[in-house]
Amino acid sequence: MYLFLKGACKGELLTTIGRDANNQAVADIENKANWKWFLELLTKDLNLQDGGGFIVISDQHKGLLEATKEVLPNVEHRQCARHIYANFRKTYTGVEFKNMFWAASFSTVESEFLRKMDDIKEVNYSAYEHLLARHPQTWCMAYFRTEVACEAVENGIAECFNAIILDARKKPLLGLFEEIRFYMMDRFYHMLQKEEK
């Protein structure tokens, strides 16, 4: 995930959001070299080795994809289904297409996915072709590795983080990082209190 910074400091906040870790870095531009640098640091810090057993969910930024293949060749790469749908609905609008897309995305076995895609094909053949061209093995649950205990088809956790730091992104770097640090400390404290109850 990356965030565009506004205000005194222009740049991109390269961020990983995970259930176990959260690291930040700022780069002048989002490209393969910066993603590679970031992923190398992340790999070292979290001892990811070749990425086996881990998942990257992204919006298909070419630089991130190329860097991930080099640094973490065995990571499972998934596309964010929400991004796939956002592009899909620009052409194929309406509740019917929305429901059919998400039914296909949440299919847990290939035969179910193929049936859902046939439903889309019956309604609109070009919508069917559009989705097949988006590599369903990266956004449909039926094709996800079963040895990894993560059923996420979208990067909602990253979107939540992005929404939380919306105002902080307009601040200079130190202010941005301080606000993120305060937020994380507060969150950890409140989660610990909940756990104790």
Rank of each mutant, 00 (worst) to 15 (best):
L192R: 11
H135N: 13
F88L: 10
I164A: 07
R145Q: 08
N124G: 09
M184R: 09
E96A: 06
F4S: 01
G11Y: 01
R169A: 00
E110G: 06
E76G: 02
V75G: 02
M1I: 10
L14R: 00
Y125F: 15
A142L: 12
E112I: 13
N22T: 05
G51N: 04
G52A: 08
E76A: 02
M100L: 14
Y2R: 13
N162R: 06
L13G: 07
H190S: 14
F97Q: 00
K69Q: 14
F97G: 00
D186C: 05
G175D: 05
N162Q: 06
K194Y: 15
L131H: 06
T93Q: 12
I157N: 01
L64H: 07
C160A: 13
N23I: 05
G53A: 10
T16L: 09
Y85W: 07
Q193C: 15
A103H: 06
R78Q: 07
K197F: 11
D45Q: 10
C80S: 02
A152S: 13
I180R: 01
M184S: 11
L174D: 14
E179F: 10
L176K: 02
Y2K: 09
E154A: 13
E70K: 04
H83F: 03
W37Q: 08
R181S: 13
V56Y: 00
K98E: 15
R134D: 05
K116N: 09
G53S: 08
N99F: 04
V148R: 14
F188Y: 12
A133V: 00
A163T: 13
E30M: 14
M185K: 15
L64P: 03
C9H: 12
H61W: 13
A127G: 10
L65M: 15
F144P: 06
S107H: 05
H83A: 01
L65P: 09
W37T: 03
S58N: 08
E196P: 09
Y189D: 05
F101T: 08
P172N: 10
P73M: 04
A104S: 14
A104K: 04
V95P: 09
L48P: 00
E70D: 12
R187V: 02
D28V: 10
A25D: 13
F38Q: 04
I17P: 00
A149D: 14
